[in-house]
Computed example of a mutant assay.
Amino acid sequence: MAFVLSLLMALVLVSYGSGGSLGCDVSQNHMLVGRKNLRLLGQMRRISPRFCLQDRKDFAFPQEMVEGGQLQEAQAISVLHEMLQQSFNLFHTESSSAAWDTTLLEQLRTGLHQQLDHLDACLGQVMGEEDSALGRTGPTLAMKRYFQGIHVYLQEKGYSDCAWETVRVEIMRSLSSSTSLHKMLRMMDGDLNSP
């Protein structure tokens, strides 16, 4: 349980850092939405991951790219955006509607959409038209491939309850790994000392 809570807290930090990070003004409302999303992800657990050990899989999260510290600001924001977009897409399928409590799922979708809107504004601030290729190369492409593997896994497992639980845990893990991207962006913005 403590591990799950630490993952949830990391997701809050990634998604809604202090004001000024990501070159954007993050309001108190964004912090509240982030906390709510974390509670929703925790509440969505329907079965214990211990019952699904046979369904575990290494999805090959591109951790070295995400934590390597070699990304430029625009790349880091693009990767974070891609993670949220792919998570939104994953939880916005017909099969996810059958797997999760409808009320919790709809609330999570709304929260992820709000996060994406915020990062869209950030992307607009740091990326011009010449940077539009970022989504088709490097770290952002690696993130797309990672999520494609998750989609294939779900399909191969017939969208079973254990497959969805495995994916829910994986998504939480991957989003928590992006904390280093958030720290890097804060340093770029000169905002490392903010709470």
Rank of each mutant, 00 (worst) to 15 (best):
E73P: 15
P139N: 04
P195Q: 12
D55R: 14
L181N: 02
S87V: 07
L32P: 03
Q155S: 11
H151R: 04
R39E: 14
T179F: 15
L185S: 03
H182V: 02
L8C: 07
S21F: 09
V66T: 01
D120G: 10
Q70E: 12
G17I: 00
K36F: 01
G17T: 04
M44K: 00
Q54L: 14
Q28L: 11
P139A: 14
T102A: 09
Q107G: 10
I47D: 06
M65V: 13
E82A: 03
G128M: 10
K57Q: 06
M188C: 10
L185T: 02
S194H: 06
A121E: 11
C24D: 11
V26P: 04
L141T: 07
F59Q: 01
I47S: 02
H92Q: 06
Q63A: 07
G20Q: 10
M31Y: 04
R173D: 13
V167H: 01
Y153T: 09
K183Q: 11
S48A: 10
L11F: 08
N89H: 07
S160Y: 08
V66M: 03
L181P: 01
Q72F: 07
S96Y: 06
Y16C: 07
G34S: 12
V12T: 05
G69Q: 09
E67F: 00
L104C: 08
P62H: 02
L22E: 05
A10D: 13
E64D: 12
V152Q: 13
H113L: 13
Q43P: 01
H30W: 11
T103M: 06
R109S: 03
I171L: 11
V169C: 15
F91Y: 15
S95Q: 14
R186M: 15
S97V: 05
Q43N: 04
H81W: 15
T93K: 05
N193V: 10
Q114S: 15
G17W: 00
V14R: 00
S178F: 00
L13V: 13
S15V: 09
G42I: 00
F3M: 11
E170M: 01
G19M: 05
N37Q: 12
H118S: 09
